[in-house]
């Protein structure tokens, strides 16, 4: 279970959000500038809240009253960025293996084979990120995050940088991931996308949570 209760001032913009999520896929829904990315950056530990608490499965990740802050590398929270952020100096195989190496985990060929199969990236292993298409890059980024064995996966508009054709290409993979059972927080401004993926919705507007609930809260909503 993820509990977030934070405030953060970013220049003129103030973010004040609280929600708890039990759902397998929490959809963070809102227009651009609503504070979605800042919010998941705080969950990842990349941004520290001014005030508030973040807990995951009973473990305190941030608590400003005690000054507790678990740094990102100790959170075991995977993050798939909109722009993939693959390491350009490493090939796909090394990118996929990066999280395992950094966490000092034993090699797990079965898991590796399963994830590369799931995402259809087995044929890309020897390529460099510079030689991949946008859709391939995003699939490798997904695989890389998953292979670090996170307990929660954050996805920030993973389809945002792709054209319509590519989106249709990636979506089935995301649905497969959801059915793997790993909890996810999925950020999007696209209600249709979230209807297909999310089990619970947190709606953000101008840095405030305006609605919480099942995917039906998306009905009639126009974010942009």
């Amino acid at each position: 279970m993820l509990r977030v209760e934070v405030t953060k001032q970013l220049g003129e913009f103030s973010l004040e959000a609280s929600f708890t999520s039990e759902g397998r896929v929490t959809g963070l829904f809102g227009a651009s500038g609503a504070g979605k990315t800042s919010l998941i950056n705080m969950i990842a530990g990349l941004l520290r809240p001014d005030r508030g608490v973040i807990t995951l499965d009973g473990e305190t990740l941030d608590d400003t009253t005690t000054g507790a802050h678990v740094p990102p590398h100790r959170r075991r929270i995977g993050y798939v960025f909109q722009d993939a952020r693959l390491f350009p100096h490493l090939d796909v195989r090394q990118n996929l293996d990066y999280g395992r190496r950094m966490n000092g985990l034993a090699e797990d060929p079965a898991q590796h084979a399963r994830i590369t199969g799931l995402l259809d990236i087995g044929g890309l292993l020897d390529r460099r990120p510079g030689k991949l298409s946008g859709g391939e890059r995003q699939r490798v980024a997904l695989g890389r995050a998953l292979l670090s064995k996170p307990r929660l996966l954050l996805l920030d508009e993973p389809l945002g940088s792709l054209d319509e054709g590519r989106k249709v290409e990636i979506l089935p993979y995301l649905i497969r991931l959801r059915d793997e059972g790993i909890p996810m927080v999925y950020v999007s401004h696209d209600a249709a996308e979230l209807r297909q993926l999310a089990t619970q919705i947190v709606m953000l507007r101008n840095g405030r949570v305006t609605a919480l609930g099942g995917v039906k809260v998306l009905t009639g909503s126009t974010p942009a």
Partner: peptide, 15 residues
């Protein structure tokens, strides 16, 4: 942002 990605994958600052 590549360094941020690295830290979310479990890399300590020196790594």
């Amino acid at each position: 942002r590549l360094e941020q990605a690295s830290s979310t994958l479990g890399a300590a600052p020196w790594q």
